[in-house]
């Protein structure tokens, strides 16, 4: 187990030195891995709490896919963001021994559902549509590992997107109650959507190098997909008054701290435990 002091300076939240490509690639992989891991944790919260047994199984399976993607991405990030002594950081180092400000996921994935199935599905629709476009484009990355991870993941995410689509159609075009609650869920999530399409200098440099996908290019296809589903479901695409940002810089919502506390508790309280 790595001493926590060795994890500073933080691998994720600090801007890498210019020209240090492996640092940049690792930071990029970590961002995508953080997105997948945090949403996997949120999906896991639904096990035994979903509206029906089949949905327990479905959300758990989606979480498992995301967890697998996160493991691949964090393991790769750890080979690029090495310890000062040159050894790779393990996936467990990155998952369990980073504090809140070192996490670089977007806020959308960390929001608590609080038992609201509509909120879970509204997020899954947007996020899976985004991840699907992202991974499809990333299969052409000049980075062979990222391209390989994406080629596997894109097929899995196609199922997630289809699942969310079917639920939005069913709830939106269902009863008055389900319509109203699905719309409320979309409204509550929408101020967190634009963050998915933000780029910073790190991403822009990796785009030039052919490694990363420019998030801005995903906006049109993602919103086109989501809008088509929402309108077919007789719902309206919200127009949020505020727009959340900051996740890629390690600025998170209050709800995220509670998620981390639960996810990291065992590894931190029982240092060296294996399971």
């Amino acid at each position: 187990m790595t001493p926590i002091s060795e994890l500073s300076p933080s691998p994720g939240a600090q801007a890498p030195p210019r020209g240090d490509k492996s640092q940049a690639v690792g930071t990029y992989a970590l961002r995508l891995g953080d997105d997948a891991l945090v949403l996997a944790q949120r999906m896991g919260e639904w096990v035994a709490s979903a509206p029906q047994l089949e949905e327990d199984v479905a959300l758990a399976n989606i979480g498992l896919d995301l967890l697998g993607q996160a493991r691949n991405l964090l393991t790769y990030a750890g080979t690029q963001l090495r310890h000062p002594d040159g050894t790779p950081r393990t996936e467990d180092d990155l998952a369990y021994l980073r504090d809140e400000r070192d996490w670089t996921n977007v806020a959308l994935v960390e929001l608590a559902d609080d038992g609201d199935f509509g909120a879970c599905i509204a997020r899954l629709l947007v996020f899976s549509a985004w991840q699907h476009e992202l991974y499809a484009a990333l299969t052409s990355s000049t980075d062979e590992t990222l391209a390989a991870v994406a080629a596997k993941a894109v097929k899995e995410v196609a199922y997630h997107r289809d699942h969310a689509t079917q639920w939005v159609l069913r709830l939106g075009d269902g009863t008055d109650e389900s319509h109203q609650r699905m719309q409320a869920a979309l409204d509550a999530r929408w101020s967190y959507v634009e963050e998915l399409f933000e780029a910073d200098d790190l991403v822009r440099e990796l785009v030039v190098a052919g490694v990363a996908v420019d998030p801005a290019t995903l906006r049109e296809p993602v919103l086109a997909y989501v809008t088509a589903v929402v309108e077919q479901a007789t719902l309206a695409v919200p127009e949020p008054a505020v727009r959340h940002t900051g996740g890629r810089r390690g600025v998170h919502t209050e709800q995220f701290g509670y998620l981390l506390a639960e996810m990291q508790h065992l590894a931190r309280s029982h240092v060296g435990a294996t399971w």
Partner: peptide, 17 residues
């Protein structure tokens, strides 16, 4: 037959069935 999602072209965005 593999149900891979369509991402481009006129059918882009259609649910995969």
């Amino acid at each position: 037959r593999r149900p891979v999602g369509r991402t481009t072209g006129p059918e882009a965005g259609a649910p995969v069935r």
